[in-house]
């Protein structure tokens, strides 16, 4: 696997600004990585390395000392945390049919200047994945994180991501909805300040009929923070009754902050319902007025609206198992 990954990186090259998937990321931050020559026979290509085009998905395979693998037995229900300490790390979770995993991914607390992780999660038939990650990297850190999720028929995947770090971070998702009635509910909130540079790339493939996905990405940006959201949705041939929605909302708290968004829909079948939307601006003047007319100071009114915006990212009909964790983190941020 290591040799396959190294060879593949040599084939496609390290990220460069001309690469569409990396146009928002400061690629100079990863240009120093030296890829050694492959040093032996290639192993079985279980992770589709030979066709992988995302360097962030390959680096951990090329360098990680070992792969940590965990199986959630069919029908069981587990809560877990994933603590990553190495510079390069690779983890695999197999959630067997009808099992449920609630997984919180912890940040890398070793404060390495560069870290790259890959997490593969296979969600079996009628299984459920609840994934939460609070990314809170320090300013000096460059961090690439890649999730590859495969969801089989009848499975439910809920992803909740909170970015509050100050570093240069790219979080990529490669998600396959492979079986009928597989569902994805993806929510991401970035509360960024100072010189934070935070980039989300999502590649979502509806490979089966009647699969549903919903992406909601919100950003509250101040200072000279820069965030990007590059979300591409593929609906493959024969995938009738697919429903897919993508909404990106951004509040820019000052003129120095910046957001870039890139929604892409590639639809190869009729009779599907796909939407995308994007809003960007400051807090609504009428909403601020409403709150101030109820006796709140201008500052408090702004805080209440920001809180509403932030908490609204994670609210929904079905309560998340991480609802309390998310609220705790938002409260720490004053939201």
């Amino acid at each position: 696997m290591k040799n396959l990954a190294r060879n593949r990186i040599r084939e496609i090259g390290l990220p460069a600004p001309r690469n569409d998937d990396w146009i928002y990321f400061p690629t100079a931050k990863v240009s120093h990585i030296e890829i050694p020559e492959a040093d032996g026979e290639n192993e079985a290509d279980e992770l589709a390395i030979a066709t992988e085009n995302n360097v962030a998905a390959l680096l951990p395979l090329a360098f990680a000392a070992s792969t940590r693998k965990q199986v959630i037995a069919a029908g069981s229900r587990e809560n877990g945390i994933l603590k990553i300490r190495d510079e390069f790390a690779h983890s695999i979770f197999d959630i067997e049919d009808s099992a449920e995993l609630s997984l919180e991914v912890f940040g890398n607390h070793q404060e390495r200047p560069f870290a790259s992780e890959r997490i593969d999660i296979n969600v079996g038939k009628n299984a459920k994945l609840n994934l939460f990650m609070h990314e809170n990297d320090a300013e000096t850190i460059t961090h690439l994180r890649h999730f590859k999720i495969k969801a089989e028929a009848g499975s439910n995947v809920r992803v909740e991501i909170l970015h509050t770090g100050l570093g240069t971070v790219r979080t990529s998702f490669d998600i396959d909805l492979n079986g009928e009635e597989a569902n994805l509910d993806f929510r991401s909130l970035s509360v960024l300040c100072a010189k934070a540079s935070n980039h989300t790339l999502l590649r979502l493939h509806h490979n089966a009929p009647n699969t549903h996905s919903n992406q909601l990405a919100r950003n509250i940006l101040s200072g000279t923070a820069f965030a990007s959201y590059d979300g591409k949705v593929d609906v493959m041939q024969g995938c009738t009754d697919v429903k897919s929605g993508q909404l990106i909302n951004t509040i820019l708290q000052n003129e120095g902050a910046k957001i870039a968004t890139k929604p892409t829909l590639r639809i190869y079948h009729d009779a599907v319902e796909c939407t995308h939307g994007n809003t960007c601006g400051s807090l609504d003047e009428d909403e601020l007025f409403y709150l101030e007319s109820r006796g709140f100071s201008a500052e408090t009114a702004k805080l209440i609206l920001s809180r509403s915006f932030a908490r609204g990212t994670f609210s929904g009909e079905e309560a998340s198992p991480f609802a309390e964790r998310v609220t705790d983190e938002l409260v720490k941020l004053g939201l």
Partner: peptide, 29 residues
């Protein structure tokens, strides 16, 4: 006076189109 001080002085305006503030509990508000 500021908007909030007008309200706190005893002026209440009921809006023609009240806004929604999702995520902020009505009672808490």
């Amino acid at each position: 006076k500021d908007i909030c001080d007008r309200a706190n002085s005893g002026l209440f305006i009921s809006m023609q189109y009240p806004i929604e503030i999702p995520g902020v509990n009505n009672v808490e508000f």
